[in-house]
């Protein structure tokens, strides 16, 4: 949860790493280049998508680009 974070961004994106299949579509979709693939592997062996921690506008395009039902949650300030 982004509580306690600096609240200068308009949005915040959370990737539930175990639900991610590492397809990279969120990275492709994000207009502010806020996503990247983690160096780490999740339990299923995927480099999961990760929010870089800044720049999110809460636009939600990554949510719609992501094929997994619950892998991405987008918060808005």
């Amino acid at each position: 949860m982004p509580e306690g974070k600096e609240k200068k961004d308009r949005g915040w994106t959370e990737v539930h790493s175990e639900e991610c299949k590492g397809c990279g579509l969120c990275i492709e979709a994000c207009p502010v280049c806020g996503m990247h693939l983690s160096d780490k592997l999740n339990g299923r062996g995927y480099h999961f998508g990760e929010y870089q921690g800044h720049g999110c506008t809460g636009c939600g395009v990554c949510f719609y680009a992501c094929p997994e039902p619950g892998a991405i949650t987008v918060f808005k300030n």
């Binding site: 982004p2 987008v74 300030n77």
Partner: peptide, 14 residues
């Protein structure tokens, strides 16, 4: 305050 805006729809099983 951040609020969840885009999240897993309720019509999916949790």
């Amino acid at each position: 305050m951040y609020a969840q805006t885009f999240q897993r729809p309720r019509s999916f099983y949790g």
